[in-house]
Amino acid sequence: MLTFIVKRLIQLPLVMLALTVLIVGLLQFLTPEERAAAYITSDAQARNIDKIIRDRGLDQPFPVQYGKWLGAAVKGDLGYSKASNEPVIDTIRERLPATAELAIVAAIPIILVGVWLGTLSALRKDRFVDQFLRVFSVISYSIPTFVMGIVLLVVFYGFLGWFPGNGNLSVINQFALTDPSFHRYTGMITVDALLNGKFDVALDALHHLVLPALTLIITSSALILKVMRGQMLEVLQSDYVRTARAKGLSERTVNLKHARRNALLPIVTFGGFVFISMLGGVLFTETIFGYPGIGEWGGTAALRFDVPGVIGFALLNAVIVVIVNTLTDILYGVVDPRVRFG
């Protein structure tokens, strides 16, 4: 088991290194001046662009440039983002907790709802519930995130007025965050507010999370539903399920203990895939709801042609994906001994 994990972990930095080669390689299509713009923070520096090019070796051959870029990146210097008006690394540090909060709030229902409905659909194969859920799932994964977000916004904010349509906190509660007695433990507003005992702030933050999370939940849980249904149907056909039935176990025990447990195995890997596709959706969800996370920053950076911004954004996403993939591989090895020893 340990060697399996270690093997997986050794690959991690190698893939990340390859990623940075691609990213820096992309920058070679720009002129040295355009590359230097990534590090300009003031007018004085703009007038001194030649110095930046010389210091950073931006007119040097690719291996030299890559070495210098990597050296700076390791120290946390990823350039300056015009879109957020601060260094890329600071933006990531400030905005990542908000995105993590959204992702967590969305991911839990995605998995639970997907697994529950998928099981239900399989157990009632070809009956009304199954037909309905199959149509529902193909419709919901056919709706692109950006359309889903806008539709939810029109209905629940524009028409019904149940939920706020912008940001992650009401203006009134934003003052609570800047209060010196308010400790930012995690950067996630809901968690921090609870830890500080400010329940009204936590509730307000949750209220703001509902629509963006719902957008992700509707578009992503359908995928889990579909795979779960397929797995469950396959497992229900297997010999050991028949044996369990023959032993006289109750239908419930057979379905939930024998069949579902095994049907869940591939969901571990697929869950990683859904998480990754959700990250892509975060870009649009956050943009639509003005939610101040990584995705909204990435969208703004792209729109303003803020090259260090979009590169920082892409790199961060890729790093998360590589880590998630490694984790799901390891997790799969943990839950399924055949992978470890096979």
Binding site: V15, A18, L27, G280, D306
Partner: peptide, 22 residues
Amino acid sequence: RVIDIIFAFPGLILTVVLVAIF
């Protein structure tokens, strides 16, 4: 390995980045 790297970017993110750079 090149394909692995392309697959490391979720959804449209690499496409968005390429369009923004060029």
